[in-house]
Simulated scan of single mutants.
Amino acid sequence: MDSIQPGSLASLSGAEKDELMQQVKQEIAVANAQELLTKMTEKCFKKCVLKPGTSLDSSEQKCVAMCMDRYMDSFNVVTRAYSGRLQKERNRM
């Protein structure tokens, strides 16, 4: 994305501002997904792979799969709770 000069947002039309906001939201979502995947991979690898080698044995594969499932389940619970709180705050305003 091109850098935005100070004051240049004022010259954008409503549709252009909406498009820019969508692009920013999309980039934030991609960055969040990349961070989630990186953290999940690091934590599950550290937990499940005690002696790194050229491949994972079946117990390591099972451990990593279960760890990633639990991590995603936990992430989804936290995300839903956070979204619910945000919605309640918005409704109060």
Rank of each mutant, 00 (worst) to 15 (best):
N32Y: 09
D69W: 13
D18G: 04
E16L: 02
L37C: 07
L37Y: 15
C67T: 05
L50A: 07
C44V: 04
L86G: 01
D73I: 08
K43Q: 15
G84F: 05
R85F: 13
N32P: 00
V49I: 08
Y82P: 00
E16P: 00
K88P: 02
T54G: 07
R70T: 09
T79F: 12
L36G: 03
K39R: 11
K62R: 14
N91T: 04
K39N: 13
L12G: 01
Q34V: 07
T79E: 10
Q34H: 06
V49K: 02
Q26F: 12
V64N: 03
A29R: 14
R85G: 07
A65N: 10
E19V: 04
M68W: 04
R70V: 05
C63Q: 05
C63S: 05
L56I: 02
K51E: 08
M21P: 00
G14F: 09
N91G: 00
K46S: 11
R90Q: 04
L56C: 02
D18A: 14
A81W: 10
Q23F: 08
G84Q: 07
S55P: 00
R70Y: 13
Y82H: 08
N91C: 01
A65C: 03
K39C: 01
L86N: 08
Q26R: 11
F75S: 03
A15R: 14
A15Y: 08
S58Y: 11
L12I: 01
S74I: 03
R80T: 08
K62W: 07
E42T: 15
V78Q: 14
M40K: 09
A33T: 10
C67Q: 05
Q87L: 11
A81G: 00
V30E: 15
G84K: 03
L20W: 01
C63N: 04
V78R: 14
V24K: 13
T79R: 14
L37R: 15
Y82D: 04
L37P: 00
A65H: 12
R92K: 14
Q22M: 10
F45T: 12
E19P: 01
V77N: 09
K43F: 13
C48P: 02
L36Y: 13
